[in-house]
Every structure is written in C-alpha cells, then in structure tokens.
Design a protein around this nucleic acid. Sequence first.
DNA 1: AGGTTCGGATGACATTGTCAAGTCAGTCGG
DNA 2: CCGACTGACTTGACAATGTCATCCGAACCT
Lengths: 200, 200
Amino acid sequence: MPGVTSRAESAAATRRALIEAAAELLDLGGLDAVTLRAVGARAGVTRGAPYTHFADKESLLIEIGTRAWERLADQSAALRANTGMSSADKLGSLVTAFLDLGRRQPHLYRLMYSNPAGDPTAMARAAQRSQDEFLAIVADLVGEQNARRYGALLIGTVNGITGMEVSNQLADPKWGVKAEELVNTLIDMIANVNQRADKG
Amino acid sequence: MPGVTSRAESAAATRRALIEAAAELLDLGGLDAVTLRAVGARAGVTRGAPYTHFADKESLLIEIGTRAWERLADQSAALRANTGMSSADKLGSLVTAFLDLGRRQPHLYRLMYSNPAGDPTAMARAAQRSQDEFLAIVADLVGEQNARRYGALLIGTVNGITGMEVSNQLADPKWGVKAEELVNTLIDMIANVNQRADKG
DNA sequence: AGGTTCGGATGACATTGTCAAGTCAGTCGG
DNA sequence: CCGACTGACTTGACAATGTCATCCGAACCT
C-alpha cells in the first residue's frame, strides 16, 4: 500500500483546495481579490502551483463558473423529477434559487455570465445544460409548442431581474416591487395566455 | 487674445481624446485592451496624462459608461416628446435601440452594467435617469398605477434578453426566436392585461 | 518682464500573470 | 531493496500594468 495519501490523491486535494480558495476569495472581495498568489496562499501552496492544474488564471475562473452552473442544473433536474409538485411551483422554486444566488454571491453571478463571444467554454456548455433543464420545466407548464418562446422569455427576464438585483438597481424604492413579484407576474401572464390558447 | 488654442481648450481636447480613445479600444478589444498606456498612445499623450483628468483608470471607464447611459436617456426623452407616435411604437423603438447597443458594442454594454454594489457612481445616476425616461413611456402605455410594476418587468426583461444576445446565448438555434419577438411578446401581454383591467 | 500655474512627460515602484529551471517525494521496473 | 523516473510543487525571473512623485515648459496673470 502506498502512503496514506497517494500522490494522485494529494494532487486532487490541492486542485480542490485551489478551486475552493479562489471561490471564497471571489465571494469575499470580488474578482480583483482573486490573484493567483492569494489563491495559492489560501490553499497552502505557492503562486506557481495553480499552473500544475490549470492552463492559466482564466481556466481556474471558468472552472468555478462551470461548477456553479452545474449545481444549478442538478438542482433543476432534481426538481423536475419531483412528482409531488406542480410545474408552476417548480418554476417558482427555481426562480427563487436563481435570485438567491445573485443576492448571496453577486460576484460569482457576474462570473457566470462573463462569457466570451468566441468559442463555447466548458462554462457555456454547463450554462446550456442548466437552461435545458429549465426549459423542460417550462414545457411542462406551457406545452412543448410554446416552451421555446416562453422559456426564452422567462430565462431572459429572470436574468435581467436578477441582474438588477445584483447591481442594486431594484433596491431603489421608486420601483416598490420585489424581484419575486415581478417574475411571478410574468409567470401568471404566461400561464393565462396559455390557458386561453388551450381553450381556443 | 491668447494663442489660437488656449491652454484650457487644449486640455479639454485632450480629455475628450482620452475618453474617445478608451471607448474605441473598448469596442475593438474589450476591457483588457483598455490600458492607460494604450489609451494615452491613441490620444497622442503618454501614460501619465490621464491622471491629470481622471482620478484613476476606473474613473475613466465610469465616464465612458456614464456618457453611454446619457445618450440613451436623451434618446428616450426625445422619443417621448415625439407626438406623432404611439406609446407602443415608442417602446418598441427604445427596445430596438437597446438591443442594437448590446449587439454593436457588447463590451460597452457590459461596462454599463458593471456597477459596484457600494456607493452610486455618476454612471449609476445616469442609468437611473435613463430608466426614469423609460418608465415615463411605459406609464403612457399602461397608466400611472401599473407603470412601476410593468416598467420594472420590462426593463428587467430587456436587460436580460439583451444580455443573452451579448453572451451569444440566444444565437443557439434551439430557441428559434429573435430577441425583438420576445420583448414584443411581453409588450403585447402587458398591453392586453392592461386593456382588460381598464374594461373591468 | 518675471513669477506662477498647470498640463503633460518621465522615472520609479509594487503588483500580478506567466514561464523556465530546479527540487524532492512518491512510484515502478528490476 | 534500489535506482531511474515521473510529476507536483517551489523559486527566480520577466514583462505588462496602474500609480505616484518629480520635473519641465509653455501659457497665463500682473
């Protein structure tokens, strides 16, 4: 038997520690606080260590964003599999999860949308998977035909409203509305339109 | 009479040149391309010159974002004053302007929403003025009472949809819808709801 | 004219991302 | 059991960048 911790194990642990350290620094001090030196120090290694596990700093950040998207996608999938819940409630639950993410981890939220226009990164692919899960739940609510149209509208709206939350724009008392209310207003409108279409 | 170009005039010209150079670099190469040295070179001065006109690099960027928001606000104000146009058309026109901005200048668009959570910058104030103008047009469409609710919903949705455009997410053929369609769908729904409320 | 003011230039410095070279412990074939 | 090897990590070095203290010179005022 090799050492209690094999080399591969300790390397994997370091990789995990680096990701965690970077994510913590991001939450605490924003993107500017995430320097490779600080990440290394927090993970108990030196500034060069990240280059063993990641091509460059951006790759490390993308890994963090990817994981966040995957958590959301998993959450959606679990929710969709839940049989004791209405589609509308599932949708509301997801929206809340999204808003909470933006509120609790605004820097992470920004990172998740900092997609370069060029090639699709791993993060972009994870984001798409998350959207597909979301879309499936919307389809349960409004039917397959309308899913794309209203799914895109809903996703866009949730992003936008959360974005306003993140940049503190909705906090302005002039609006007098909460983010959840706004999204629920839209969900209601969509459900209504769809209901009328069903009857027609 | 002092020289053909007074010192104050040339200083103001330099300031303008710096802002323009920075904005061009932003459009061309993204935020990473905006280094003070590059900005100075493009404006015909050296790296230290910006510090005569701006406290730091961030202030220069904020100035660019502020100007962009002000252009939008002015555009909205002009539109609102136009008497030969329906409120719905005004709204559609504004939405188009917004989407075009995101499509043509994605880096600038991102900058406009990169608001720090803390104190309200000049950019944040300009953004608010722009939103107020938008809100006024929405109020013409749905009435003063509903303006806040639906205005916030619309602004959030436009932001979100544009954001999806900017990060190339709507380009995915799986959606099969265009950004304008989505927003128009929402505008129609809002107009309908309001119409029914009027009759009730 | 002579002093003053201020826009801009220059030198210097700390921080940071990145890489080449070196070090050392775990691993494996014999 | 031992020597070679592999690969994770460290260290030294470098270039780019934001920022500031200092300096220069031309426009400005009296």
